[in-house]
Computed example of a mutant assay.
Amino acid sequence: MTAPIRHLAHFSWGTLRAPVDDPQITTFAEAVPRVNSRAEASPGFVWRFGDERPPAEEAGWPLFDDQRIIASYSIWETPEALKAFVYQGSHGAFYNRRAEWFDQDAPRGYVLWWVAPGHRPDITEAWSKVDKLATEGPSDAAFTFAQLAPAASSGKL
């Protein structure tokens, strides 16, 4: 078996309906460690950033001035592995209930991009991919599941 040429990086963010310590967010907040544990045990999982809401000073992103905004980023072997985790199992069950905890009219979204195996993106890289997707649209450098760029044609990292 040959080593993968690329891994898939994922960054997502959403705005909670209330602060994370508010009772209406309790079910979601209490499930995060369990769901993260299941992610780490999922087929195709490679790595995830351990802090669910990077501090604004690290992120350099005004979005994080709002304490209701949380984010996560991770690395997966394939898009199929990430999709299976996101849309099925325990994460899928919580994803289907996202309107209970997340403000659907507030900042939210995700971006995907290819990375070399072993690479661990920081928040600056993740933000640059969000910006690239927002300003230039989907490309080999930043995309979504709907416009998945092939790993083999992703060119320079």
Rank of each mutant, 00 (worst) to 15 (best):
M1Q: 12
T2E: 09
P4Q: 08
R6T: 01
H7I: 03
H7T: 07
H7C: 06
L8N: 00
H10S: 11
F11R: 03
S12I: 04
G14I: 05
G14W: 05
L16K: 09
R17P: 04
P19M: 13
P19D: 01
D21Y: 06
Q24A: 15
T26R: 15
T27R: 13
F28Y: 15
E30D: 10
P33E: 02
P33C: 09
S37V: 07
S37P: 11
A39F: 00
A39K: 13
E40T: 09
E40M: 05
A41C: 06
S42Y: 02
S42L: 00
G44V: 13
G44D: 01
W47I: 09
F49N: 14
F49R: 15
G50W: 04
G50V: 08
G50M: 08
E52H: 14
P55N: 07
A56W: 05
E57S: 13
G60H: 07
L63A: 10
Q67K: 12
I69P: 05
I69R: 12
I69D: 11
I70S: 12
I70M: 11
I70V: 15
A71P: 03
A71T: 11
I75F: 00
W76P: 00
W76D: 02
E77H: 01
T78Y: 01
E80P: 04
A81Q: 03
L82K: 01
A84S: 08
F85H: 08
V86P: 13
G89Q: 11
G92V: 07
A93D: 12
F94G: 08
R97E: 14
R97A: 12
R98W: 03
A99I: 15
E100F: 04
W101I: 12
F102S: 06
D105A: 11
A106M: 04
P107I: 11
L112W: 00
L112T: 02
W113P: 01
V115N: 05
A116I: 06
A116E: 05
R120S: 11
R120C: 13
I123P: 06
T124G: 14
E125P: 04
A126C: 15
L133D: 03
L133M: 03
T135C: 07
E136L: 10
E136H: 10
E136V: 11
G137C: 04
G137I: 00
P138S: 15
S139G: 11
A141C: 07
A142I: 06
F143S: 02
T144M: 08
T144G: 06
A146Y: 06
Q147K: 08
L148D: 07
P150Y: 00
S153Y: 04
L157Y: 04
